[in-house]
Design a protein around this nucleic acid. Structure first.
Length: 328
DNA sequence: CATTCGTGAAGACGAAT
DNA sequence: ATTCGATTTCACGAATG
């Protein structure tokens, strides 16, 4: 009969080399990219940087089937078999596929007649997988989400969130008149913000295939229609990335963080309406001064993609509001 | 000399109409 | 769809060290 293989059967037997290389990739404490804190994501087996999203080692955990019987009488009733389900594949990763080679399950070449039959079967099979317009959209969208997430260095969990957001938009029939790209991009934007690893609209735009306008439109649209409540990004979210990009000391980071948190506590209202990146940049500048690890306004501006003028203004305001900034 | 400061005009954005 | 208000950017020269 036809050879139907389960997708992504994960390796049960690992070779010796695999074991060794896996052990050599021992977890480190700080991110090689930005020196941010590394967070281990138990669910996905990823060790990723909490600030820049850099993934250090992925897939330490075998996602393969668990062959143990889960019931006392030893029956297979509860056995868990197959690949893990994931929102990142359009069908949650539960589908099967027909091999493209014209061989049967034993590797024997098929007869001409059988081959033709297989052609038809294949055609039918792929159609059922992607036939519905929605499913076809999904496939393309998920590819895009993955591509953009990679380019932005977002952790795996954030990509799944983006996928879920897109699925919801799809199921609520929100795609009419909007491009798949723009919705996908908006989903990534949403997911990054919800995961407290926000990317600026500029960063998002550079990795997307569509312009800024459709992105913001779609973003507004889906957040409204799906009732997604997204808090404005905190300057603190941007701080670790800046610190690492500028190679500042922990001291400087501490001071910067301190400045931000204290002003946030005492002058909550002040922060409204201001670009959080500008606030973060100003705090980093101030912090670097306090910690004797000075960087110029221009350097901070470069790293944060913000003008010196803005840094100056925020810096001044921070000084006025927090008298506790002065005197090292 | 490099860095910081200050300014006015112009653009971009969100909210309101 | 346009208007309005606040914010940011740009470009520049002056001040500071």
């Amino acid at each position: 009969m036809s050879k139907i293989t389960q997708r992504e059967r994960s390796p049960r037997e690992r070779t010796d080399e695999d074991q060794q290389t896996n052990e050599q990739a021992s977890p480190t404490e700080t991110c090689p990219e930005c020196d941010g804190n590394l967070v281990h994501d138990e669910k996905h087996g990823d060790t990723a940087c909490s600030s820049c999203g850099y993934v250090v080692s992925s897939d330490e955990i075998d996602h393969g089937p668990d062959w143990r019987s889960m019931s006392d009488d030893g029956s297979w009733g509860e056995s868990r078999v197959g690949s893990p389900r994931t929102k990142m594949l359009h069908d949650d990763g539960v589908s099967s596929q027909i091999d493209w080679r014209n061989k049967d399950a034993y590797g024997n070449t098929l007869s001409t007649k059988q081959r033709q039959k297989m052609q038809r079967l294949r055609k039918w099979h792929t159609r059922t997988q992607t036939n519905q317009a929605g499913d076809r959209n999904l496939k393309q969208a998920l590819t895009e989400i993955d591509r953009m997430s990679s380019a932005l260095g977002l952790p795996e969990s954030t990509r799944e969130t983006a996928s879920v957001v897109y699925r919801r938009a799809l199921s609520e029939d929100l795609l009419r008149g909007r491009s798949i790209e723009s919705i996908s991009t908006a989903a990534v934007y949403v997911a990054a913000r919800q995961a407290s690893v926000p990317r600026t609209l500029d960063e998002i735009t550079t990795v997307s295939r569509v312009e800024r306008l459709p992105i913001t439109r779609s973003y507004r649209y889906i957040t409204r229609e799906l009732n997604l409540e997204i808090a404005p990004p905190s300057p603190l979210d941007y701080l670790p990335r800046l610190v690492s990009e500028l190679d500042l000391t922990d001291d400087a980071e501490f001071e910067s963080r301190n400045i931000l948190t204290t002003t946030a506590e005492n002058h909550e209202s002040y922060l409204g309406g201001k670009n959080p990146v500008g606030l973060a940049a100003a705090a980093v500048y101030a912090g670097s001064l306090l910690a004797n690890d000075k960087v110029t306004q221009a350097e901070v501006g470069e790293a944060a993609d913000i003008t010196e003028v803005t840094i100056r203004n925020r810096y001044q305001e921070l000084m006025e509001l927090g008298a506790n900034v002065k005197s090292p």
